[in-house]
Simulated assay, not measured.
Amino acid sequence: MNSGVVKSEKSINLEKVRVTAEQYYRNGDFYCSEAVVKVIKDEFELDITDEIISMASGFPVGIGGSGCTCGAITGGIMALGLFFGRSEAKDEKVNKAMELSKELHDFFKGKNNSLCCRILTKGMTLGTKEHIDQCILFTGQVAEETARIISRELNYKLK
């Protein structure tokens, strides 16, 4: 991991991760990408400031509202990078970050048939209950799967 310290012998409650991420979105505290980064940072007790959440602020609604890649998945990939990404040039850790990011991508695409926000929300009006409920679901799915991948890679127990 590049920054922050993870406590050893940690166990992670995946349901709590999912529910907390969904709550952040449902309550209007954070958008999808921000909620995923925040819950991973908090649940894994990373010793980094909440400024990391601000890095995820441009991704909601398919990257700044453009309807491209789902913000939840970009938040999950950012969170994976916190643990498995590189911070030094030519560090081979990038291979692990890319491998795990593809795993998260494939999970989401397999479950939802697309990563494109425009396709995922086709026929929905932005901000309606239907749209919000779907985004809450995606936020929870991604947060839970991201936590599962991180826990597996760090040999953490799951609750």
Rank of each mutant, 00 (worst) to 15 (best):
D106H: 13
F83T: 01
S11D: 03
N155A: 11
G110F: 07
E45Q: 14
V19K: 13
G4P: 09
E45D: 15
C70T: 05
E45R: 08
G75H: 01
G127L: 09
C135K: 11
T20F: 08
G4V: 06
E43N: 11
I53K: 01
K16W: 04
I73R: 04
V6C: 03
N155D: 14
E144S: 12
Y25V: 13
E153R: 05
E92G: 06
L80C: 07
K129Y: 11
L80Y: 05
Y25A: 05
S8D: 15
C70V: 10
G110T: 02
F138H: 10
I48S: 00
K111V: 13
G65T: 07
A97G: 07
D29Y: 13
T121P: 03
Y31T: 04
A35W: 06
N13Q: 08
Q23F: 12
T74Q: 05
L104R: 04
P60F: 08
G28S: 01
K93I: 01
H105I: 14
S3T: 12
C68S: 15
N27R: 15
G28K: 02
E22L: 07
E22G: 03
M55K: 09
G123L: 06
A147H: 01
D106C: 04
T121A: 14
S33Y: 02
A79Y: 00
F107M: 12
E99V: 10
T49R: 04
E88Y: 12
